[in-house]
Design a protein around this nucleic acid. Structure first.
Lengths: 137, 137
DNA sequence: CCTCATATCTATAGTCGCTGGAGTGTTTAG
DNA sequence: CTAAACACTCCAGCGACTATAGATATGAGG
């Protein structure tokens, strides 16, 4: 039997976040002590660790809800789980690509080394004039 | 004289977003028509284009507010503008690094090709068991 | 001038994924 | 038995919008 604080320490998920996950239906409402405090079993610890891990990997609450639902039917085919993960991977790759473009633009902009005045600052001018950029974004 | 719709079309910033920027103090409250509709000058069009560009580059409203304030004092040194852009570049690089790690993990996880059942699906098992990961995240 | 479609107005609430605080009650170690 | 630590509920706030409802304004065609 774990208190919510135990669960929090063991998974690294903050207490209000655990309560939030319960509200969002990611974990079931656990049993309560006589004084109305939450008491968890090992099962819930594992479930929360799964959620934590998936969140760390950037999966949305929605996607995690689906994966958790799937994991309760071990006999079904896993195409759906694969699809969720694959889609997420694609999203991550897209984000990386976008950020790389930003990185290039920012590198160019930052080439002004702060050794003159705002009036001829490349940072300000580059932001004001999109046509100074190399790629569209 | 541009209406809010004109401004929106010319900058690609949605109408509610323009009003939001006004509320947030990024653009001044413009003159109004007799019927209380916003009427903008070219100055505001340029300012909004600046904001749009900076947002596209991922700068926060806060950072943009600072840059706009700086751009109104062309005689001052531009070290501060440079600092804002440089810090942002560092943040972008960090995000890229984090996402790359996720990419690697997700690639490993997705190696399960959906041709079996949830019970032995690598996606689900990998999420449940953090120790299967190569790097911490 | 009148009508009508389109545009705009304000105010408010919702999005996501938490996070924090206030004010109260419970558990546990000494 | 007391005090510290912990947990409870409810509600508000973050950032950067986005959406909705219901009212009013504008501009072009007849």
């Amino acid at each position: 039997m774990y208190s919510i604080g135990d669960l929090s320490r063991r998974t690294g998920v903050k207490i209000p976040t655990i309560r939030y996950y319960e509200q969002m239906g990611l974990i079931e409402a656990p049993e309560r002590s006589e004084g109305n405090q939450r008491r968890y079993e090992k099962r819930e610890l594992e479930r929360l660790a799964f959620i934590r891990h998936a969140r760390d990997l950037g999966l949305s609450i929605e996607a995690i809800r689906d994966l958790l639902a799937l994991s309760e039917h071990p006999e079904r085919p896993c195409g759906e789980a694969d699809r969720i993960a694959t889609e997420h991977l694609a999203a991550v790759r897209e984000k990386i690509a976008r950020l790389r473009k930003l990185e290039v633009e920012l590198e160019r902009i930052v080439a002004c080394h702060g050794d003159h005045t705002i009036g001829d600052c490349y940072v300000i001018r580059a932001l004001a004039d999109h046509s100074m950029c190399e790629s569209e974004h």
